[in-house]
């Protein structure tokens, strides 16, 4: 038993090592200046410029047009993350509500059609999606960035399973209490789904935050750039003999990791509750 526990810990520690080392390296490297990094590669100690790269990267206008700084990108990322997560939750809850509580022809067929869209990730349909968004004039807009992504088979599936586990008597009691479909949804179903909503919010926020391909395609205006794609932008600026700002790129990478980490850490108890517990 004892030995088993030790080996458990060794496995876990190895996992932690693989997960955390790159982050630590990125952080340590970001405290050195660009020249040092360029000469000797990744750094394993704390450098002499401290956290100054973080200040620079957040406030100094960079990129090709010199119009975008870290703060703007952070804002864009937050808009994308929240819009993406909230949009997905609203759409998938309504879809699941329709599928579970309304008897309409081919309801389960509709559900499986939605489910099958899992087989068609963005990468597969990226050209037609881009074509539609571009024709609608939504290139370089927040709605163009968010709306095409918010349909969610995963979310619909999770909410469907949750709604199916809600006892029918609750609906019947509400019907006798004079609650129509809309009132039942808002007054009863949404409040009892809140741990589920929180869990899906976390997953979707992180997912939305880490979007790379779609923002890269749909935003050409630098003022719409998100953090995740902005990192590349810093390294791309080769002007004459200028050395790329590796320290700033590392700082930006660390910054880009922070909000999802904060969200997960803060909401983790909700997250586990939502996925495990059923309080009905």
């Amino acid at each position: 038993m004892k030995r088993l526990q030790i080996s458990d810990h060794i496995i876990l520690l190895a996992g932690v090592f693989f997960m955390v080392t790159p982050v630590v390296l990125a952080f340590l490297t970001s405290t050195h200046d660009a020249v040092t990094i360029y000469r000797t590669g990744l750094q394993y100690s704390i450098g002499d410029q401290g956290l100054s790269a973080y200040g620079t990267v957040l406030t100094r206008a960079g990129g090709f047009t010199k119009e975008v700084n870290g703060m703007v990108m952070l804002k864009n990322s937050l808009i994308l993350g929240f819009g993406f997560a909230i949009g997905k939750i609203v759409i998938s809850m309504l879809a699941a509500y329709a599928i579970v509580y309304f008897r309409f022809p081919m309801a389960s067929f509709c559900f499986w059609v939605i489910f099958c869209t899992l087989l068609l990730p963005l990468e597969v349909r990226i050209l037609p999606s881009y074509e539609i968004v571009q024709k609608l004039g939504m290139v370089n807009t927040y709605s163009g960035l968010i709306v095409p992504l918010i349909a969610s088979a995963t979310g619909t599936f999770f909410f469907r399973q949750f709604f199916l586990s809600v006892p029918d008597e609750l609906l019947e009691a509400a019907r006798i209490d004079g609650a129509g479909p809309w009132k039942f949804f808002i007054d009863i179903l949404v409040p009892i789904s809140k741990t589920m909503i929180a869990a899906i919010f976390i997953i979707m926020f992180v997912y939305g935050w880490n979007q790379y391909l779609w923002p890269t395609l749909i935003t050409t205006d630098e003022s719409f750039f998100t953090l995740v794609r902005g990192i590349k932008q810093i390294l791309q600026v080769w002007v004459g003999a200028q050395i790329p700002d590796y320290d700033q790129a590392m700082a930006l990478a660390i910054l880009a990791m922070l909000p999802p980490v904060v969200i997960v850490v803060v909401f983790q108890s909700w997250f586990i509750k939502g996925l495990v517990e059923s309080d009905k």
């Binding site: 008597e169 019947e172 009892i192 809140k194 309080d279 009905k280």
Partner: peptide, 21 residues
Amino acid sequence: IDPADRDIAMVFQNYALYPHM
């Protein structure tokens, strides 16, 4: 006629109380 308009009240086996209220 809709259940709400029948002027009846029902008590369920599993109580069916609204858990969040």
